[in-house]
Structures are given as C-alpha cells and as structure tokens.
Design a protein around this nucleic acid. Structure first.
Lengths: 243, 243
DNA sequence: CAGTGGTCTAGACCACCAA
DNA sequence: TGGTGGTCTAGACCACTGG
C-alpha cells in the first residue's frame, strides 16, 4: 500500500559512496582512504558518522582499518558471486549476468507435517504455503528450491510472483521486512525427486542449503531447502576472526 | 616474548557478560534485555558504549533489536557447530567435545609453483611451508588439510606445533594477529590423494573449502585447502539481510 | 503519552605508527 | 612528534511502539 520512504542516513550515503568507488574501480586494491578527520570535512559530518560508515565497510570486507596508519581497500574480489548473506535467486542471477529461468512446479497450501511444523516452530497441521521451483541457468536445471511459508504472513501467492521474486513481493507489496537467516550447508544423496526435476548428469549427490528466515521483529516465517547440483555449487564467505 | 596485555574495553566486557548469560541459559530464548537507558545505569557507562555492545551482539546473531520495543535474545541454537568464521580445528574440536586426532603427513619448505604463487600473491619459486594433515574424528579420517604459509612469516615450524594448533603458535608465540579470511566452498571429485589419506567409504566426491587468510595489517599469509568427506561436512552460517 | 531504539554531534583521552 | 584509528562521554532530536 504505502510506498516505503527510502531515506538513507548520512552514514549509509557515505558507505554507498565508497562501495561504489571500490566496485567501479575508482579505488584500486590497497588504496589508502582519506583519514577520518579528512572525511569529516569531505562529507561535512561528525567523526562518529564517518566511523559508522567505515565500520560497515570493514565488516562487509571492503576495507581494513589499521591503527596509526589508516583505512585501506582490500583487493578481495568482491564481484565473484558472494552467495553469503540473504539474497534472492533473482537478485543473484541479475548480478551474475547469466541466462536464467524459473520453473514453478508447485504452489499449494498444505497442512504442516511433523517435520515442517518443527522447522517453522508451529503446531502440526497449521496451514503453510509449499512452493517448489526449479532454477535453470544456461539451459541446465541446476537448483531445486523448496520453500515453505507460514500462511498467516502471506494471504495470497500467484505463479507470477513465484516466477519473479517472492522476496520482492514480500518486501515491496506486503511491507514485510526480512531481517536475518540461519543457514546450513550439507551434502546428501540425491533423491528421486532431485533426479526427476534436475539435470543431474551422473552425479548422485546434491548440496543442500537449509535456511530459516526471520522478519524484522524476530518472527520466523520461512523454511527453505535449496538443492544444488554439486559441480555448480559455490559458496563464498568473508569472515573475521573473533577475538 | 612479551605477553599480550589483555585489556578488554568496557563494551567488550558488557558483550561478554551478556553472551555468557545467553550461553549459560540465564537468558532464555526471546527474553527482553534491559533497555539501553537501564543498561547505562547497570553498567555505569554511556549509552554509546551500551550500544556498541548491543550492535556486536546483534551482528553475531545473539539478539535482535526492535525499534520502539527493545532488544530480545534469539532462540537460535548457537551451540551447534558454527563453522562460520575463522576457527582452528583444535578450537572447533574442543567445542564439539568429540574424540579427535591430527596426523601430520608432511611438513616441508617448497618453492611455490605457479598455482600456489598466484593464490598467495607472491612470485614463482618463493619459499613456502607446505603442511599436510589428516583430521580424525571418532576414529575416522574425515578431513584432509593442506596448508601453505609464506615462509617469511614463519621462520620455523615443528611437528609438535602442527599437531597442536598452528594458529595458537602464530598468535601466542610469533605475535601475529590473524584478522580475516575469504573462504570458498565447492564440491569436487575425490582425487587419488583424498582416497589414499581419508576414509572415504564409497563416496567419490569431497567438499573443498579454500581459504585465504590475512593478518591484521591486511597482508595475505596463508592459503588452505580443507577437503572433507561429504556426509560429515556441515557449515552453519548466520546472515543478515543487506538493505 | 512515555519509553524505546536510530542517528548525529562535539569533545576528550588513549595507543599505535611513521618520520 | 603529529597523525591515525579506538574508546568513551553527554547531550540532542527523531521515528517507532505501546497503552
């Protein structure tokens, strides 16, 4: 209904400005950024605001701050497919610039069985959406996505929405704010369903990414199993050492 | 030489205090934390210091802050094997409380070949340490770790160090500060070496985790390939949605 | 409405680094 | 030594939640 007012804060504007410069190559690898004091003048903000932007850049792997020396861009190749984080297939595919397609195999309201009820932390038999989609990249069916949403959050769901992006619909039409997810990556024997729906070649295993996704107010609303052909799976992560 | 003075800052003390309460179960799932104003009194610090602690808790998946309502603990099961982040096998094994053992297959100084030179961003032929270790858990050889360190950072290396924890040695004896890493997870066909050194049963694939690890001052010093038996591999991640 | 977290400011002192 | 980032403070205004 109401369009979300996108009022970016100052520190986010600085963050986005520098991210842009890094990704567009205006700031090469290992460049020294202006000091925090200089940035105060450049952007006309307080030091704390500058620091908020720099901390975000650091925790997202764009820069490294070194006490007494300054902040430096990292030469990590951030362009290459950071599956880490919460990103919809559509967002990802767009970034990769590959030819892609989604086949919607099933959209149905079902009562939660024991397993799904436990995953979604609801009572047995509560109504949930089951959405099964096959992702095709470069004309090969490579990913099988099985999504389960608690019905209460999503009154209606159409094939068009599922073919485009469900996250897009949730965030821009229903006003739901997706906030965080817990993910688990394992490797399993392929099921009959995997073999039927995917182009598995002669592989007998699939990579399974299970996600529990939560809203802004910490309510769990989605459980997903994303099943990938092993040779086409790649997960890139940036991690900082915990002291 | 000099023992590192561990002077924790105020916000880290608050962070650790709350992490402890959550992990010891003193703060159950979905508990409401005191408000930021209350915490100022409780800990006798300024609001900004409280907020730094809370932001750390939030980005590490311990709590969720909700505007106008408060901060709440998440019921995410943080005990279960968070392979995410940078953690040595020893640290991990200790946490899991399983029976484990490390077999050191090889410690050698070799000249970097073309591939390793590229991975470590050094010239061909520069001296590097090659350390090959097999990790045994519950009497099964499950992980093959192939580590490569730039020799300049590590003058000497012994079997004892490799059997214990190289990270421990680097941080506590050489005074090197490990800071961040870029990781990539893929699945590959098992090599002859994998089959020879691991108990692969009848699996013909392995999960390969490649890491580039960097020091505090953003210098790359390590490249690692960690090769896992597929059924024993599990990677758990906590991710926040990027706005 | 009072209380909450989100942002921003101005100023202070410290530890580290390079010259 | 002067410049850098790291921590901490006190105060301000805002937007959002609840009763």
């Amino acid at each position: 209904m109401t369009s979300v007012m996108e009022m970016d804060s100052k520190y986010l504007m600085i963050y986005n400005d520098i991210v842009g410069k890094i990704e567009k190559g205006k700031l090469g690898a290992n460049s020294k950024l202006p000091s925090e004091n200089e940035m105060m003048d450049i952007y006309g903000v307080s030091r704390d605001t500058v620091r908020k932007a720099l901390n975000l850049l650091e925790s997202n792997g764009y820069i490294q701050k070194i006490k007494g020396k300054g902040s430096f861009t990292l030469d990590i190749n951030r362009i290459d497919f950071p599956v880490s984080g919460i990103t919809s297939f559509k967002e990802l595919a767009k970034r990769m610039g590959k030819e892609w397609k989604t086949h919607v195999e099933k959209i149905e309201i079902i009562p939660a069985d024991e397993y799904l009820a436990e995953q979604l932390k609801i009572e047995d038999g509560r109504e949930i959406w089951e959405v099964i989609r096959v992702r095709e990249i470069n004309r090969r069916k490579i990913i099988l996505d099985k999504d389960y949403f608690i019905k209460d959050f999503i009154p209606s769901l159409t094939k068009e929405i599922c073919q485009d992006s469900i996250y897009d619909y949730l965030e821009n039409n229903l006003g739901l704010q997706i906030s965080f997810a817990k993910k688990e990556i394992t490797v399993q024997r392929a099921t009959e369903e995997d073999r039927r729906l995917l182009d598995l070649k002669n592989y007998d295993m699939v990579v399974v990414v299970k996600s529990h996704t939560y809203l802004d107010d910490a309510r769990l609303f989605q459980y997903t199993e994303s099943r990938h052909r092993p040779d086409k799976f790649r997960f890139v992560d940036f991690a900082r050492r915990q002291r």
